[in-house]
Design a protein around this nucleic acid. Structure first.
Length: 423
RNA sequence: GGAGGGGUGGCCGAGUGGACGAUGGCGGCGGUCUUGAAAACCGUUGUGCGACGAGCACCGUGGGUUCGAAUCCUACCCCCUCCGCCA
């Protein structure tokens, strides 16, 4: 969420920054509401001051047995006026809030201007695409013929966009999760957490999924719980409404969770295979940092995520999202895209973002500087480290052999009892 | 699910209508004393809004009663104990 005061004082800047996202937002009512709110708060304070003083006086007069009827009836009307003002102020506060809650974050100056993903900027490419002397098959073919992925039965059990992993397939998914968690905890200094996979409305609002994107979420309608679309939600909300002292920052968490997404509006896209599922596994990196450190921390987080692909030896590239492709809460985002031979294209496998204060303000996550002089909102960051299902897809496709088997990357073999090949 | 007991400052804990933003203790910070430290003693020590002044708000959360609410009423949330059920 943006700061009311900042928006009021920098209206032109804010409007221009948001128009780069392709959003035209009308702030005309907003400034009026804000000044009306200020007026109400001021007159409410004045009346309360009077009431407090006179009420004290009434107490004193009563103690000495003097008459107070006159003052009491005066204060009765003052109290009524205070109540009226409070009702109005609450209403305006709510309207201001619901307006601001659906306004996206302001892009960082380094975010390239552009209207959609075609205008994202490639930052670097690593590794080489594998060369095949045969036509590489898509992962769903490979998975079915090796009997490690069962799409039909996944659909039978739950519905479309659900998959059953079997045997070595299930094992490979678990190996990837463990490999990623070990890498980030043992070598990159992240603290492992295993959060709830369902969260309440407040947490969803804190990270920005609500109120605007409710239709993307699976909801338990009788309980007002939501299935998490990413570990970002429960993990960022670990420190909801907390004040963290500067010495403890940065805090880095890594969490494995399944993720649940309705994928509304993606009908017809990626209908085959594991790429787009209602339920998928992800290892997520989340950081809480001092504001002046957040951009260097974003670079480190990105490298931490990339390291997974480097160890696996898979070709990938890093792109920076342009303003039009940027997520709602993000100021700056890098996507890591992995090479998929069957599609001869790069597909997103990680998204690493700096949200600056945007989530911290919504979720009430503050810092206090050493010595207690400065206070403010921390910056939050997160990134996939990585999307596990898509990593499995990348392995099946990039390490497929002519005979239909899959060569297991060396980094994973310790997690597969030394197995070298899936055949 | 049933019965009962609770939620107060960093922590413990007092406070049942006005003198309470809140006694006291612990912890923290500053000082006196000491070669230094400990002990002892003195002082200080919440957050937000605000011209950073005056002032206002905040005692789990939201409503309500009252001239006046941490205190009374009400709904909800959370924690603890016992019973039931359960991995």
């Amino acid at each position: 969420m943006l700061d009311v005061k900042f928006v009021i004082e920098n209206l032109d800047f804010v409007q221009e920054a948001l128009s780069a996202r392709g959003q035209r937002i009308d702030f005309s009512g907003f400034t009026d509401l804000s000044s009306e709110r200020k007026r109400l708060l001021l007159s409410g304070d004045e009346l309360r001051q009077k009431r407090n003083a006179v009420s004290d006086e009434i107490g004193r007069l009563k103690a000495t047995g003097q008459k107070t009827e006159q003052l009491i009836s005066e204060m009765k009307s003052v109290s009524d006026r205070i109540k009226e003002i409070e009702v109005k102020a609450r209403d305006i506060e709510e309207r201001l809030n619901s307006f601001l809650l659906v306004i996206p974050n302001i892009p960082h100056p380094s975010t390239p201007k552009g209207k959609d993903s075609n205008e994202n900027k490639e930052i670097r490419r690593l590794g080489e695409p594998p060369q095949f002397d045969f036509k590489p098959r898509p992962h769903w073919d490979i998975g079915e013929s090796l009997d490690i992925l069962d799409f039909e039965r996944g659909t039978k059990i739950a519905g479309s966009r659900f998959t059953l992993y079997k045997g070595t397939g299930a094992r490979l998914e678990r190996a990837l999760i463990n490999f990623m968690l070990d890498l980030h905890t043992k070598e990159h200094g992240y603290i492992e957490v295993l959060p709830p996979f369902m969260v309440n409305r407040v947490s969803m609002t804190g990270t920005g999924q609500l109120p605007k994107f409710e239709e993307d979420l699976f909801k338990c309608k009788d309980d007002d719980y939501f299935l998490i679309p990413t570990a970002e939600v429960p993990v960022t909300n670990i420190h909801q409404n907390e004040v963290i002292s500067e010495e403890k920052l940065p805090i880095s968490y890594v969490a494995y969770t399944p993720c649940f997404r309705r994928e509304a509006g993606s009908y017809g896209k990626d209908t085959r295979g594991l790429i787009r599922q209602h339920q998928f596994n992800k290892v997520e990196l989340v950081k809480f940092v001092m504001p002046d450190k957040s951009y260097e921390e974003l670079e480190r987080l990105l490298l931490d995520a990339e390291e997974v692909l480097r160890r696996l030896g898979v070709h990938y590239r890093v792109v920076q999202l342009c303003t039009g492709d940027l997520g709602f809460a993000s100021a700056k985002t890098y996507d890591i895209e992995v090479w998929l031979p069957s599609q001869e294209t790069f597909r997103e496998i990680s998204s690493c973002s700096n949200f600056e204060e945007f989530q911290a303000r919504r979720a009430g996550i503050r810092y206090v500087s050493t010595g207690g002089k400065r206070r403010g909102f921390v910056h939050t960051l997160n990134g996939s480290g990585l999307a596990v299902g898509r990593t499995l897809v990348a392995i099946l496709e990039n390490f497929q052999q002519k005979d239909g088997s899959i060569l297991i990357p060396e980094a994973l073999r310790p997690y597969m009892d030394g197995m070298e090949r899936i055949a």
